[in-house]
Design a protein around this nucleic acid. Structure first.
Lengths: 307, 307
DNA sequence: CTCCGTTATGCATTGGACGCATGGATTCTC
DNA sequence: GAGAATCCATGCGTCCAATGCATAACGGAG
């Protein structure tokens, strides 16, 4: 095998122009190099192919047999080359790529639907794959198993090479039965702290957010637990539980409205508190996908889809 | 379109090694370049692709998404490249190429059959195309219409770029009827000069060779013409004419033997004379086919097929 | 925290590609 | 057939950029 390291592949670009023009000076103009430079390149090409490539005739240069055979191949090769080095274009409208997310509920349910809505509209051929199996959140990223992770957790210090984007926090609202006493009268922090709370969590985490917040606000003394008699692993049955009990759920506002629609439920704004009152999450991705056009597009859509 | 002139395609060779090894130092060893050189090449590659290509992980470098997609394409591309720059191999056994000759009779009939015999044996798929239409002998060469010309003529001084090979001269013999008086007794130059000669010529040329020779030998005085009462344009009817007349033909020895076989003919060696007593010809070819593997092979066979 | 393996970088060198100017060859024109 | 025009090749000086060496920086493992 000829060792490509010893060859100057850049010469091949010059060769095509030479074979097309059959004219050293003109090829030089087209390539933006001087005539002597092209002449020397031709010398090197002749050595490289051990063939004259261009032969003098009374009508100027003509192609040698080798050059004749080479020209079409060379054109194909250059096209190939251009394709190879050209930035891969991502066309949402025609892409059928799969974008893989990892993230726990409930964050996935809160932050990804707006993205998916845009995907359905702008990239109907794409597939969104979401994995919420409880496990290490950042391992899949490092292994390249997923493109993105959506999580409220922080990556451990050891996992470098991660990029992140803070997703716009979603303000929380309280969902409860219209018959719940809390549905009437002022919605104060102490009344909230005294209520019976439900939470959705696949990971065992989740409600801690509200509890911690109320502690910091002084509505619960540290060590005192929030009254949380209901833990669900999905949102589907929230309306049914709320309608038939005194349970209240902290949920992102718009999400709560959707659940309450057509039910005997009411959604009430929570009183202004710290930033912890909102549902937040970060989007993380690995360096390896940082420049990937599809992933960039997804990130843009995620940003654009925020309220 | 990205301008390939501004890119260094040689870097792509390094890139493949890098992507395969995922290791700068090792790639350097394989490529025969120092580690810093490879590191710098990687920098340039990263700029070229606007992508990290190799990303650090706890287990060393791993491929970015782009690199992952690139690697198989790159391998294909390098194979293509190698094919492109590698010397085209000519395999007689499988070739179906057409080799085109131009040349006048009778030289074609004398010099090409040994070649064709070898071709049938060694290159059964190839086609030998011979054109003997009388015309300018060297024009077809310059136009690239034919690969070779076989002719006793010299190219005009203006036609440069021609290569040539002297074909081994064929010694001439005389063919005549067994009843011809010349068939008996010593075959001296004066008896030959006195005989009635036939000649084969498509071009009008041909017999001049014998005539000139006899003049130079002093057997004919300048201006005196050889007795040549028969001109044929092919060899086919020579036996029939010779058998029924006193005509003698100067023909290459082996060719004469073939014609005489099974006929009432005799082949006699001519007495030693100058080099002009032999049938000679040159093989000419144009610069453009000088390095062509098929043409080289043909030239070899032509040489090898000589007596 | 330190050591080891690996990669990145500062620095000096060099090789070769380039442009300019010119020589040499060939063709075209008159 | 002489002269002009065109075009390619080459000698020469320049300069850039790739390379190698030495070393620093970095990251992981113990």
């Amino acid at each position: 095998m000829t060792n490509l390291r010893t060859l100057d592949l850049n010469l091949l670009v010059v060769l095509r122009q030479l074979l097309e023009d059959r004219h050293v000076s003109r090829a030089g103009e087209q390539l933006g190099m001087s005539q002597p430079a092209v002449s020397r390149a031709l010398q090197r090409l002749r050595a490289m192919f051990d063939d004259p490539l261009l032969v003098r005739t009374p009508r100027g240069f003509e192609l040698s047999a080798r050059a004749e055979a080479l020209l079409p191949e060379l054109s194909r090769w250059l096209d190939e080359t251009e394709r190879l080095v050209s930035r891969p274009v991502f066309d949402p409208a025609t892409s059928t790529q799969v974008v893989r997310f990892y993230g726990p509920e409930p964050e996935v349910g809160w932050f990804l639907p707006p993205l998916f809505e845009r995907m359905r509209r702008l990239a109907p051929g794409m597939v969104l794959e979401v994995n919420s199996q409880p496990r290490d959140h950042f391992g899949p990223l490092e292994r390249g198993d997923v493109h993105f992770v959506v999580t409220p957790f922080e990556p451990s210090a050891s996992t470098a090479q991660l990029h992140s984007l803070r997703l716009a926090p979603l303000s929380l609202a309280l969902v409860m039965s219209k018959d719940n006493p809390l549905a009437q009268g002022p919605l104060t922090l102490d009344r909230i702290a005294a209520a019976s709370h439900g939470l959705v969590s696949l990971t065992g985490r989740g409600g801690g957010m509200v509890e911690r917040d109320l502690i910091e606000q002084g509505q619960l003394s540290p060590g005192e637990r929030l009254n949380q008699p209901l833990r669900l692993s999905s949102f589907a049955s929230i309306p049914a539980f709320c309608e038939r009990s005194d349970i209240v759920f902290h949920l992102p506002h718009r999400f709560a409205e959707e659940l309450a629609r057509g039910r005997n439920l009411v959604v009430r704004e929570t009183p202004p508190r710290t930033t912890k009152e909102v549902a937040y999450a970060h989007l993380y991705w690995h360096e390896r996908f940082h420049k990937d056009p599809m992933c960039r597009w997804i990130r843009e859509q995620l940003k654009a889809g925020q309220v």
